[in-house]
Design a protein around this nucleic acid. Sequence first.
RNA 1: CGGGGCGUAGCGCAGUUUGGUUAGCGCGCCUGCCUUGGGAGCAGGAGGUCACCAGUUCGAAUCUGGUCGCCCCGACCA
Length: 597
Amino acid sequence: MRWSQALIPTLKETPADAVAPSHILLLRAGMIRRLGSGAYTYLPLGLRVLHKAIAIVRQEIDAAGALEILMPALQPIELWKESGRFDTFGDLLMQLKLSNQQHAALGPTHEEVVTDLARDLINTYRQLPITLYQIQTKFRDEPRPRFGVLRTREFVMKDAYSFGANVEQLSASYDAMFEAYCRTFDRCGLDYVIVEAESGPIGGDSSHEFMVPSDIGEDSVVQCLKCGYAANRERAEIGVIPKLDEKLGAETAAPPYEKVATPNRRTIEEVASFLKMKPDQTAKLLVYLADGRPVAALLRGDRTANEAKIRRAFAASTLVPADQETIERATGVPLGFLGPVAIKIPLLVDREIASMTQVVVGGGELDVHLRGVVPGRDFPLDDLRDLRDADSGDPCPKCGEKLELRQGIEIGHVFKLGTKYSKAMGATFLDEHGQAVPLIMGCYGIGANRILAAAVESGYDQNGIIWPFPLAPYTVLIAPLQVQNAEVLSAADTIAKALESAGIDYLIDDRELRPGVKFKDADLIGIPIRVVIGERGLKEGKIELKWRHKAEAETIPAESAAEAIIELVESTKKSHEAMCRSRIAERAAARSTATGN
RNA sequence: CGGGGCGUAGCGCAGUUUGGUUAGCGCGCCUGCCUUGGGAGCAGGAGGUCACCAGUUCGAAUCUGGUCGCCCCGACCA
């Protein structure tokens, strides 16, 4: 492609409403343009990257044995009512009225449609297992689109759905997708982390997220750098925190707790600052309705409750925070002054509380808190649980080392669904005994646009984007510096022709501009290999070769330049493929050790 | 949905507090000269419903009321 014929509207200045590096750079590099909030046009350069990412996804998902289909984005609302998600999806679902009063939705995901298809087409266990997928635009009425292409109202997703006759088939399909995702992201050249994710009432290892670490990532993940444990923050378990054994001797002699007046101080912040203490010296008592029954959880004041953990701890299938009226009716204590001493409803205590010698808690009556309360002495510690979100510095559940908390961009998610949709929508098959049984499903998503955002977030410098080799809009940028000079231009054209016939994609900057402008633009759009041809070098029979990610350029002989560049591209591809293969081997080895024996 | 900010040329901004010539500046764009290895220089030029609607006023980018749009923080995120 000749730059003079292309549409690459680079910007010298930073657009005012872009904040995230990927957003700023994709705009400045002329790859995207905003139409409205959360809606972006992909210009030629950006679209090429998107297409390269999609091509890799498609190859790997195909190779994993899934079958590509294309379902409508436009869906009858009845399907959503049938699955029960019309209510749970809420305002996120983009709805519209068609003629004839038809009520429709633009698909935010396709469990309903694919389950409808399956109940129609899958009749017998002999057709199972099967995995269907599509690559298609999804619609979600996001309350707050942000960070450019990272969170939009309309986005391209690869969504796959597996159907199995039993749990073994589900696991096999899940594992195949999991492996395909690893291969996909390895091939994209992304640095990703796989984390255990919260999977709802099913539990177990039935959900994983693929994350690219980034400060603008919207998900928090905890990671143990020692043993490799990684989990979504909501999911992460916390290792055992040592109890203070010695306190049994020392602290039983501590003075009894005292009541202090805390007029109208209800929140942890208010109480702590009023008593001139830190929030981590206090504890808070939270009240929930577990399957409708009021229950309480006690956490250190500065911690975040984890509702999924609390729900499981109370063996409940639903858990919602209790409202003020319910709390006061159930406990007889006004909101803001609840404490664990003499509480009237079932109480579970977070494990961490056992490591506190003294604590400030609510006094169980209006405008009163208790200071110097000793856990274990003043309230029981016999049922300790893990009830909170993991934090930086908490012990790893596997090895006890300190966990690190980081942000990440979710680029892929694999999930064992079970029979949630097949049961709700009557998607059954006949098993070996002629029994109609619900299909066992899994679902697997990859956000194509997020691959772009994540690649830029993890590959840029102050001059612009540094694309990973496999995703770059073009592999080689050829920059003849003096286009008026016939020798320079023909040297550039010679190289271009050679790349063309070698099947290597390139962009040739044939614009009649000053060299500085060309260099700035080249850095901005981030093409991996830059070939500079200038009058000066050409006189000495030399042209310049530079990697975008390296500071220094090298010179090579002009007459053999084309061959050298082709060789460089080929060897880079080969070493990347070799890296992907060795990752595959590593995972296979890890699996056989894990299955043990 | 709560809090904060913004809307003036393709992009970045000044002007608004205190109403008053023809609404400015930089970048980009067009023409010419000049220049040519890291966003050059000179000269000339095009480009504006000052987000929209209503009001106050002799007079509104500027004051008042309303509407819309966009960004950030939070809530939310199968």
